[in-house]
């Protein structure tokens, strides 16, 4: 699997939803969570930096590697929900 250089993307919590659909996780055909769609009006869409097809390596510094889908999506959801930060940091990568 060719992973291109990771990029840190900071998405501000500027809307009521993050607005991404994520597929994949450990023990599936897509072992790292991949952005499947981006919903109009969500934070990801408004900030304009995330792209469909990118994989998410880390969320707020927490590695998603080896996490199953349910746990990885829980990490993302909790990063969005926490009031400690008004943004979510994604370490993302393009896949060849």
């Amino acid at each position: 699997m060719g992973v291109m250089e990771p990029t840190l993307v900071r998405v501000p919590k500027c809307a009521s939803t993050l607005g991404i659909a994520v597929e994949g996780g450990a023990n599936t055909r897509q072992p790292l969570p991949r952005i499947a769609t981006i919903q109009k009006g969500g934070c990801a869409h408004i900030s304009g930096q995330l792209r469909v097809g990118q994989v998410i390596l880390e969320v707020n510094g927490v590695s998603l590697k080896g996490m199953e889908h349910r746990d990885a999506t829980r990490v993302i959801a909790e990063a969005f929900k926490t009031k400690d930060k008004d943004y979510v940091d994604f370490l993302i990568a393009e896949i060849n």
Binding site: T17, L18, G19, I20, A21, V22, E23, G24, G25, N27, T28, R29, Q30, A36, Q39, H69, T73, I76, A77, F80
Partner: peptide, 15 residues
């Protein structure tokens, strides 16, 4: 490779 082919597809979660 064979193992990869037998892995199930993932569900999709909207966040």
């Amino acid at each position: 490779r064979e193992k990869r082919l037998t892995l199930p597809p993932s569900e999709i979660t909207l966040l």
